[in-house]
Computed example of a mutant assay.
Amino acid sequence: MNPPVRTSGTAIASLVFGIITWVGLPFIGALVAVICGHVARGEIRRMPPGEIDGDGLAIAGMILGYAQLALFLLGLLLFVGILIFGFSLSGMH
Rank of each mutant, 00 (worst) to 15 (best):
I35S: 07
F17Y: 12
I20F: 10
V23M: 14
P26G: 09
G9N: 03
I19V: 14
H38N: 10
S8E: 03
T7H: 05
S14G: 10
H38W: 04
V23W: 15
W22M: 00
S8Y: 03
T7Q: 08
A40C: 02
I35W: 00
G29S: 08
W22D: 15
G37V: 02
I12H: 01
V39D: 03
R6I: 15
T10C: 08
A11F: 01
I12Q: 10
A13E: 14
T21A: 05
A13P: 00
V5G: 07
L15Q: 15
C36M: 10
H38V: 04
F27Q: 11
L15E: 15
S14N: 09
R6M: 15
A13S: 11
I20R: 13
I19W: 12
T10N: 06
G37R: 03
F27S: 11
F17D: 15
F27R: 12
A40H: 01
R6P: 00
L15H: 13
G9C: 10
I35C: 08
G18Q: 07
G29K: 05
S14L: 06
S14T: 09
I19G: 12
I12G: 02
T7W: 01
I20K: 12
C36N: 09
V5R: 15
I35G: 04
G37A: 01
T7I: 15
G29C: 05
V32H: 00
G24Y: 12
A33I: 01
W22N: 13
F27C: 06
F17V: 08
I20D: 10
A30P: 03
A33G: 05
W22I: 00
S8Q: 03
I19E: 15
F17G: 08
G37H: 02
G24W: 14
I28C: 04
S8C: 07
T10H: 01
V32D: 06
F17R: 12
G24M: 11
G29P: 00
I35E: 06
A13C: 10
V32S: 05
G18S: 07
V5S: 11
L25C: 11
A13N: 10
V32Q: 03
A33P: 02
I35L: 11
V16S: 12
P26Y: 09
I20E: 13
G37D: 02
C36W: 00
I20S: 10
G37S: 03
T7Y: 03
G37L: 02
V16Q: 13
T10P: 03
C36G: 03
L31I: 14
G24H: 07
I12V: 15
V16C: 11
T10Q: 06
I12C: 09
A40R: 00
L25N: 10
W22A: 04
T7S: 05
V5F: 11
V34A: 08
G18L: 00
T7A: 08
G37Q: 01
V5E: 13
R6N: 13
A11C: 01
V39W: 00
C36Q: 06
A30E: 12
H38E: 09
H38D: 05
A11E: 05
G37M: 01
P26H: 07
S8P: 02
A11H: 01
R6S: 15
I20L: 14
G9L: 06
V32Y: 01
T21F: 04
V5T: 15
V16A: 15
L31T: 08
W22Q: 14
L15P: 05
V39K: 03
V32L: 06
L15T: 10
V23F: 15
A13M: 12
